[in-house]
Design a protein around this nucleic acid. Structure first.
Lengths: 204, 204, 204, 204
DNA sequence: CATGAATGAGTCTTCATTCAT
DNA sequence: GATGAATGAAGACTCATTCAT
């Protein structure tokens, strides 16, 4: 009769999953609630039983997916800044985001829709928090930019990967073989650490 | 009575300017033709005299704004790849994009809308061309990622700058002074060259 | 442990009270069952345990609140018409309606919603019955109108009172002090009796 | 090529006519834009070409129909208050409203919908203005109530008339013959003047 | 060159209602 | 007595697009 740690409801989390999928693939604006409902085999009205508004679904997504970031932030806030901490943060972020690639993509590619949305803001704050921890206190604009790019690295890698797949083999020996997801992520981490490595300790 | 190099029509180019402004600021989907028309003081129908469809406006934008990229590409294609050429390409791209920041922002933040749009594809091809020239032949995935990020650097800098402006000074001595546009661009170039600098000549 | 004259159920009568409040304040159409349920701290479904439909709640309201009218009607039907009876009916109606002001307001301001509703009809029949008793048999249209207006007088007074409250003192010495509820009701009775006083015994 | 005094557009005024008809008959909330559009043989979207919102249609109605009231108010404001002016105002209002009966009915029976609507407020202000002119300065609550009821008299007469028609002859010799519209209006004026006649000159 | 009028398809959202538990 | 989950129908509104003038 009782499940340990029962999710708020099955439908609710299925909505979150499917919505993120569609939002990431087709964009927030181009994804209608009908599409989400159809793919789930329920009615639009059912969505409204679980979420007050379309934007509230985004809220649900963030709430359900941002945990690794929150943990990384929580951890980072307890450490005094050091190059090691910095690198560890980058690593943790990358690790957490690999399986959540759609979340990052959604966030990056839907800024206009998220601008002015409370839930969009919510996630942006987390990103900004991470960035701040990575570059540490008293950072120059250069270093803040490095921190930003280091974290966005995963995203660029995913962009590139997607490009390769869309071309499906149409690149004539110009480049090497198409990378796998794992390779892409590895590359993203390599480059991210390179970039972050140039961040200099805050000038007192 | 006669303009040297008269543009196809004044209204036409005003539409392009205003549309890009709005697309960049509010997003492609959230910008209606009515808004564009209103801001220009004409009717929606007038837009249809100059452009066949909403997407066609994007086409017009790209056509009107991508020139510097095209020139950089044209130049780059004639040079054999070398670290100097690579850096010069990065510099030219940055130089060209500073005044066209909205274009880049529009491109980055509206992927979902642009996906599936002929005009979106058009611009993406140019970006891919640039990336390819920057990393040169036979590049590893790592290097292609570096090239990509070097070019996207401007965009990250602009993202950061916008964040600062939105907070308007609410960050308590945590970071240095808010940067100016020029400083931001300079930083973006610095970092871009750092990243590109790690690209290694195509191995065997 | 036992209430004399226990109501059908406590929740049931709380629903009636709250529903009438909301119906009177915000209108029948603009009041959703969710609102009623929320204000009571129960679920919509709970309402359906006590009432078959939304309209059935109106039925419940009328049933619970129209008693004084019914009694006045019952009394009036036993008396032969006379000016004294007429005045007494007006007085009884006014007396009964003061504490039931929301009922009257609801009835007056929601005609469109009540039209076509069985429960709306129910109440209207009572009003018509009252009117008929007030003007007595063989009344001219003028007298029927007088009877109608005499009874609706309370409502107009309440309308006026509400207006005053909404303006909260913004009328610059144009009128006297804002009246209290008691004064308003007293005025309404004065005027009602004036109007009814002109009703002439059924001619011929 | 040019019509003197051409209406803003034919469709526009047809919308106003039909909308008022339906609003008065079925209520504001129960009248959907589809209904209005259907009855006009156009699409919902066409309505939105002429009116920004459903409420804006009400605004249009008031603007188009309230002229007689405005004129009466304008006239009344120029006269010093006197019993003759008072009666004349009542007469003018009645005269103006007969052909606009639906407007008054709409206003009376849709308070909840109009509450909070700018256009509803607009009309209410006019009514309040009229009332104020009828009772004159320094009026007691009683007199303000008389003024109000005098003006609402038409409405009550119409209510009564409608009742008679709905019963279609089911009243068993209880009352006289059903009145005609003209008789009803005449009665309403008679009673209105009676009521207004009791208004006493403001107590200096 | 441009407008006024209109459309069709689709969006998000709300509501009364139902039913298994 | 009451709830959680879901539905079907409908509503207001927006948008890109068309076309006669």
């Amino acid at each position: 009769m009782s499940t340990t740690l029962s999710p708020r409801s099955d439908t609710r989390s299925r909505i979150i999953t499917v919505a993120l999928e569609l939002f990431a693939e087709n964009g927030y604006e181009k994804t209608s609630l009908r599409e989400i409902a159809d793919r789930l085999g329920v009615t639009k009205a059912a969505l409204y039983y679980h979420f007050k508004t379309k934007d509230d679904i985004v809220h649900g997504i963030v709430e359900a997916m941002a945990q690794p970031i929150d943990e990384a932030i929580a951890w980072g806030e307890k450490q005094p800044w050091s190059p090691e901490v910095r690198d560890e943060l980058v690593r943790r972020f990358a690790a957490g985001m690999v399986e959540r690639a759609p979340l990052l993509r959604f966030f990056h590619e839907n800024q206009p829709a998220l601008r002015g949305s409370p839930s969009g803001h919510e996630f942006k704050q987390r990103m900004i928090g991470m960035i701040r921890l990575v570059h540490g206190p008293n950072a120059s604009f250069d270093d803040r930019l490095r921190a930003t790019m280091a974290l966005f690295s995963v995203n660029s890698a995913l962009f590139l990967l997607k490009q390769d797949l869309d071309d499906d083999g149409a690149h004539p020996a110009q480049c090497e073989e198409t990378a796998t997801l794992e390779q892409a992520v590895a590359a993203s981490l390599t480059v991210a650490l390179e970039i972050a490595g140039r961040i200099e300790p805050g000038a007192a």
